[in-house]
Design a protein around this nucleic acid. Structure first.
Lengths: 161, 161
DNA sequence: CAATTAACTTGCAAAGTGCAAGTAAAGCCT
DNA sequence: AGGCTTTACTTGCACTTTGCAAGTTAATTG
């Protein structure tokens, strides 16, 4: 079996959007990607405590499917043999622009509360955000970009000067 | 009941990404949005013939949910009382950046065949594409931006000069 | 006015989801 | 060494959603 994702029997058409949705078009996959991308999560336990209360069997299933799709990889911790660290692949981190746009859309249209000002800053600094997300991925910098609903924007925008 | 989408009992968290996925995080919703956005589709029949073979009960269900979420509206045709025309709302057309990024990701990582050159052009003209999508929506211009896998790129890029 | 068409609805089997409980292997504690 | 805890799952089961085929209703066409 090759390392590349099998183009499975469930593929519906030649459209790239359709292809993308075949892989990440469900209620959970992109939340796992989000946790890896902006929250600095990496273990099963982390994902479990994510706030959306994913069932453990579904989580295990999605991690497997995402691994099979080449979006993330798993490696056992060298020091603690119990824990497995998941990490986005290049293909996985490449979802960042799509995730960012979904975030902005969700914040504009689906959020209650005071996300507005934060979102404006993010919207006006898309490229900065994306570069930072990718940099942290590349350098294995697991510090969260966002945690407990708070974004680390100052830190990111300062770095840019 | 207000005109705005109810924030339903199925909402999982305060995260905007999660909120977005609660509404469009399934295998079909964004395909309907795509059909409306770039293929110039507007009727039940159109969506049915989309290539991905959505079942009619699921299609009806998704159209209802998308309507309830304020992503699209339905209006009966003035001349032919049988057909219903669906149309994206402002909130719906505002999904364009997210859909575009998913398209680019899908094309980069999930497509077989020769989408590469087309995708490069689209990737390098994101803003032009998005402006055109929105313009067509605003002016109710139903000509497809893409049809049968072929993108009308010349037409769009020329308009830009 | 019979046939056709558009937009659904219904019935049902199969697949997927969510919850609670259980398991296996590794680590920690004394 | 032996028992408790932790991590990452797996299992069982009720419930929901999906997919397919067939049917329905209302409007239009010939």
């Amino acid at each position: 079996m090759p390392a590349v994702a099998r183009r499975s029997a469930t593929r519906r058409s030649e459209c790239p959007i359709s292809g993308a949705l075949d892989v990440i078009g469900d209620r959970w996959s992109l939340l796992i990607v989000r946790d890896l991308m902006v929250r600095g999560f990496s273990t099963f336990k982390d994902f479990q405590g994510s706030g959306e209360r994913i069932a453990t069997n579904i989580l295990a299933d999605r991690l497997l499917k995402l691994r099979r799709s080449g979006i993330l990889t798993a490696r056992r911790d060298a020091e603690d043999g119990r824990t497995v660290h998941y990490r986005l692949t290049e293909k996985g981190i490449d979802l960042a622009p799509a995730v960012l746009e979904l975030l902005l859309w969700g914040a504009r249209h689906e959020s209650r509360g005071d996300t507005c000002s934060v979102v404006r800053v993010i919207a006006q600094n898309r490229e900065v955000m994306l570069r930072e997300v990718r940099r942290r991925w590349r350098e294995r910098d697991l510090r969260p970009l966002q945690s407990g609903g708070r974004w680390m924007l100052n830190e990111i925008l300062e770095r840019q000067t």
